[in-house]
Amino acid sequence: MKIKKIEAKETYPVRNEVLRKGKPIETCYFKGDENLDTSHFGLYLENSLIGIISIFKERNPLFSEEPQFQIRGMAVLDNYQGKGYGALLVKAAEDYCLDLNTELIWFNARESAIPFYKKLNYTIIGDSFEIPDVGIHFVMYKKIQKK
């Protein structure tokens, strides 16, 4: 198992399979994917990409911390879910953000993913909201610090 930096376009097949199932591959492009301060990571089992996570330098007005980063497109292929790979990707994102001297990570979590993120000590802030064609989401966050 290995986590390494990848290009935005390398995330699209996993995004499509897990997050945009049945939709055109073009829906897997996120605004900001190609920004210089956006990073993408892939989790490889042997030589197969089985999970992804993207980190965007994105400010949310709900928080005062600077800088802050948003996780987007966190996904693990169905056959590999429930085995701890998603937690490894989130931990890698947290470590990466700590290296960039941030104290806050936030994201829009699908309603179905709330229990997963709560186990990783993320907290909901505010009410649910709908992302068209995707579903109900909640803003979640975590204040992080170097140990």
Score class of each variant (00 low, 15 high):
Glu34Pro: 01
Phe63Lys: 09
Val134Asn: 02
Asp133Pro: 08
His40Gln: 11
Gly135Ala: 13
Asn47Gly: 11
Thr102Pro: 07
Gly51Asn: 11
Lys118Met: 11
Ala109Asn: 00
Leu89Cys: 05
Gln145Arg: 15
Met140Tyr: 06
Glu94Asp: 03
Tyr141Asn: 05
Arg59Gly: 03
Val90Pro: 02
Asp78Phe: 02
Met74Ser: 04
Leu120Val: 09
Tyr85Asn: 03
Asn108Thr: 04
Gly42Ala: 06
Ile50Phe: 05
Tyr141Phe: 14
Leu19Thr: 01
Ile124Trp: 03
Gly126Asn: 12
Arg110Tyr: 00
Tyr44Lys: 05
Ile131Gln: 09
Lys142Thr: 10
Ile52Tyr: 05
Ile71His: 00
Ala75Asn: 03
Tyr96His: 14
Leu89Asn: 01
Leu43Glu: 01
Lys5Gly: 01
Glu103Arg: 14
Lys118Gly: 03
Met74Leu: 13
Leu88Glu: 14
Pro115Ala: 06
Tyr117Met: 05
Leu89Tyr: 01
Gln81Asp: 06
Lys143Gln: 13
Asn101Ala: 03
Ala8Thr: 06
Thr11Gln: 08
Leu62Ala: 14
Asp37Ile: 13
Pro61Trp: 03
Lys57Ile: 03
Glu26Met: 12
Asp78Lys: 07
Ile3Thr: 03
Lys9Phe: 08
Gln81Trp: 06
Phe129Met: 13
Leu45Tyr: 12
Ser48Pro: 01
Glu7Arg: 05
Pro132Trp: 09
Ile124Asp: 04
Asn35Gln: 09
Ile114Tyr: 00
Ile131Met: 11
Phe107Ser: 03
Ile71Gln: 00
Ile55Pro: 01
Arg15Gln: 07
Val139Gln: 04
Tyr44Ile: 08
Lys118His: 11
Ser128Leu: 06
Asn60Gln: 09
Pro61Val: 11
Leu77Asn: 10
Ser112Glu: 07
Thr27Ala: 09
Leu77Glu: 06
Thr123Trp: 04
Lys9Asn: 07
Leu98Ser: 07
